[in-house]
């Protein structure tokens, strides 16, 4: 198969970027999208034309969340429930033109070419996306039973891989699905109840600070999530937020 690629090239965070057009030929339909880019890079190095195209990738089996390209108008390309590394060239037609862009969001500045800085996600988690236990001194694992239904729903939310496709897809570059998934995962478990209100408050405030947009309920995030995390998690977060709004603060007696 032969393809014409239009790839966003940008030397560094501050440089001007532009699209560059490359051609690749004789690509096997069984080739994954990232392997196709490997082949292009091999070609670029061998022909000494240009610096190889930089793109983030790691596990290449759809779980690490490192890869993420905006391909022909869709995060992770034209298939549902996959990451970029799971996209195969057989999903394209011979001779296709493919536009490859980095995630675009104020909160995800470009590092080079297609590589963006997603540390904002880490910062949101740091704000409170956890249960504050230190090592040791915890009760036996079976002390608190968790209804299977809740455990399963928590797991559904916990499958988020933090790739940022939700932000990339959202017209407001909002991180609601990412934050919602974590808030919902922990709020669903009795262990997470204790801090639920504090958690949602801190995480949402951090999210706002970091320059993500707000939700307009278009559910583009849900449509593009490689782990198919549901919008109901955002609703859950809203619910937790409302609870938090109406909860009183503890004021010590004078």
């Amino acid at each position: 198969m032969n393809f014409t690629l239009h790839i966003w090239r940008q030397e560094n965070a501050t440089a001007e970027g532009h699209f560059e057009t490359y051609k690749v030929s004789d690509i096997s339909p069984d080739c994954s999208f990232l392997e196709m880019l490997d082949i292009l890079n091999e070609q670029l190095i061998n022909d000494k034309i240009a610096h190889p195209v930089c793109f983030d990738n790691d596990c290449r089996e759809g779980i690490c969340g490192m890869c993420g390209l905006y391909i022909n108008g869709r995060p992770h390309g034209n298939d549902d429930g996959i990451t970029t590394c799971q996209l195969h060239m057989r999903k394209f037609h011979d001779g296709d033109e493919i536009w490859i862009e980095p995630w675009r969001a104020k909160a995800f500045p470009i590092i080079r070419d297609l590589v963006v800085d997603r540390s904002a996600f880490d910062k949101i988690i740091q704000a409170g996306g956890y249960i504050s236990v230190t090592t040791g001194g915890v009760p036996d694992a079976n002390t608190i039973p968790v209804p299977k239904r809740f455990a399963d729903m928590a797991m559904d939310a916990a499958e988020c891989i933090g790739c940022g496709a939700c932000v990339a897809a959202c017209k407001n570059a909002s991180a609601m699905l990412f934050v919602g998934a974590k808030v919902a995962h922990l709020a669903m478990l009795p262990q997470g109840h204790v801090e639920a209100q504090e958690r949602v408050k801190k995480m949402v405030c951090r999210m706002d600070e970091l320059g993500f947009g707000s939700c307009t309920n278009t559910y583009a995030c849900e449509a593009e999530c490689p782990k198919q995390i549901k919008r109901q998690n955002i609703a859950r977060m809203n619910r937790e937020w409302i609870k938090q709004l109406f909860a009183g603060n503890h004021k010590p007696a004078e």
């Binding site: 956890y130 915890v138 455990a151 922990l186």
Partner: peptide, 16 residues
């Protein structure tokens, strides 16, 4: 024990 306290959603049976 540690992981459950951290909120790792391990598989559970119907008894919880």
């Amino acid at each position: 024990d540690q992981c459950v306290a951290q909120g790792v959603p391990f598989a559970r049976d119907y008894s919880g």
